[in-house]
C-alpha cells in the first residue's frame, strides 16, 4: 500500500510526434498491475490512448501529441475496495495505493497523487497531463492533479472529462451540485461573479458572451432560459444539436449561468466536447506551422490564422504580394497563438 509495494520499471513512448519540449505530452501510469500483468497494462493504455486520440478535437491535433506509458508493477492486482461502501473488502498492496470509496463514495477511485506526479516527472519531465489506469473492472475514477479511471466500460470517459478540467481549464457545465433530484435548495441562482473558465458565463447578452464569435446571428440569445429556477431545466433543446448559443443552467446553478451548447462532455459523459470547449483545447495544445512560402498573402494569412497562429507581415503589402520567407519554418511545432513572420515580395511567384 506504498511505493514499497511495487517498482517503476521505465517508460515507453507509444506515440512519438516530436520533441517533448515542444509537443503536448500525455503520460499513462498503471496501478494494481502485477509484473505478470504488464502486457495487459500495455494493451489497456493503447486502448485508452486510442479513445482519446479519436475524440474531437484531439483527433485533429494528433501531430502534436506524444503519449508515454510508464510501466509500474505492484505486488498485488487490483485496488482496495472497502466494505464501508458496499465493496468486496479487498485490500491490495499497490504502488500508488489505489482505493475505491474515497470520502465514503464507492465510485470515487483515487491514488496517491503526489507519488503519481513524482513518478511522471521523473520519467517524463515535460509531461502535460497524467492519467492513472487502475487494474479493476469495478467502475470508478476521479480528477484533480491526476486523472484516475478503472477498466470498467465507459470509465475512459471519466479520464477525458477530467483532462478537460486539469489540462485545459474547463468548467463543469452541469446545472446542479449534488444532482437535480437531490433536494438541494442552494443552487437556484449562480452568484454574481464571472467564472474564469472559458465555457461558462453569467452574461446573458450576445455582446457579453465569451464565445459570441461562434454564435450565428440567427440564433437567439439567451437560447434557452430556465422558467423555474427552483429546478433543473429538463426540457429538450429548442435548436438543433451543435448550435452554439447561451443555455441557462451551468456551473452548479439552475439559473444565472450559461453554457455554450445544450450538450457537452463537461455536462454529461458520452457527449462530444462543445465547440467552445474544443476551441479552448486547441488553444492550449501546440500547433504546427503551415507551409505558406510562395503563397499569395491572403491565402497565407488564412492558413496561419486557421492553425491558431498570428500572422506578422513584413515588406510590401500590395496586390500581388507573396510570401518569400517564413519563420518558424513549415511543420515546426509551436505554442498556439505564436506569431508567424512572413516576409513579402511583390510580383510573380518564381
Amino acid at each position: 500500500m506504498t511505493t514499497s509495494d511495487g517498482s517503476v520499471l521505465g517508460r515507453t513512448t507509444i506515440v512519438d510526434r516530436g520533441s517533448p519540449a515542444e509537443c503536448w505530452n500525455l503520460v499513462f501510469l498503471g496501478d494494481g498491475y502485477t509484473s505478470t500483468q504488464l502486457a495487459q497494462y500495455a494493451t489497456d493504455v493503447n486502448n485508452a490512448a486510442s479513445v482519446l486520440l479519436n475524440t474531437p478535437p484531439f483527433n485533429g491535433r494528433r501531430a502534436v501529441i506524444n503519449v508515454f506509458r510508464v510501466d509500474v508493477s505492484s505486488t498485488d492486482s487490483g485496488a482496495d475496495d472497502p466494505v464501508a461502501c458496499g465493496g468486496s473488502g479487498a485490500v491490495r498492496r499497490t504502488y500508488f495505493d489505489a482505493t475505491f470509496c474515497t470520502n465514503g463514495i464507492q465510485r470515487l477511485l483515487t491514488v496517491d497523487a503526489a507519488t503519481a506526479l513524482a513518478v511522471a516527472g521523473a520519467q517524463v519531465p515535460e509531461f502535460d497531463a497524467v492519467l492513472v489506469i487502475v487494474n479493476s473492472t469495478v467502475y470508478g475514477g476521479s480528477g484533480g492533479a491526476v486523472g484516475v479511471f478503472s477498466l470498467a466500460g465507459n470509465a475512459t470517459e471519466i479520464a477525458i472529462h477530467e483532462l478537460g478540467h486539469t489540462a485545459f481549464g474547463l468548467a463543469d457545465e452541469y446545472m446542479y451540485y449534488r444532482g437535480c433530484g437531490s433536494g438541494e435548495t442552494d443552487r437556484d441562482h449562480h452568484p454574481p461573479v464571472e467564472p474564469v473558465e472559458p465555457n461558462v458565463t453569467i452574461a446573458s447578452t450576445r455582446a457579453g458572451l465569451k464565445w459570441r464569435d461562434l454564435i450565428l446571428s440567427s440564433t437567439p440569445v439567451p437560447t434557452m432560459s430556465n422558467p423555474d429556477c427552483a429546478q433543473c431545466d429538463s426540457r429538450p433543446s429548442p435548436v438543433p444539436t451543435g448550435t452554439v448559443g447561451a443555455f441557462e443552467g451551468a456551473h452548479y446553478a439552475h439559473c444565472g449561468a450559461y453554457r455554450p451548447e445544450y450538450g457537452c462532455k463537461l455536462l454529461t459523459l458520452g457527449t462530444p466536447f462543445c465547440a467552445v470547449c474544443q476551441r479552448r483545447i486547441r488553444q492550449v495544445l501546440p500547433t504546427t506551422v503551415p507551409h505558406v512560402r510562395e503563397l499569395r498573402v491572403a491565402q497565407a494569412v488564412k492558413l496561419v490564422r486557421g492553425a491558431g497562429l498570428v500572422p506578422k507581415l513584413v515588406g510590401p503589402q500590395q496586390h500581388g504580394s507573396w510570401v518569400w520567407q517564413q519563420s518558424p519554418k513549415a511543420g515546426a511545432i509551436v505554442a498556439s497563438g505564436s506569431t508567424v513572420t512572413m516576409r513579402l515580395r511583390s510580383g510573380p511567384i518564381p
Binding site: H161, Y174, Y176, R178, C180, L267, T268, G270
Partner: peptide, 11 residues
Amino acid sequence: FPEQLGEEISR
C-alpha cells in the same frame, strides 16, 4: 461519475 453514459455527474 455515473456508470451509465448520459446520467448525472455530481459533486
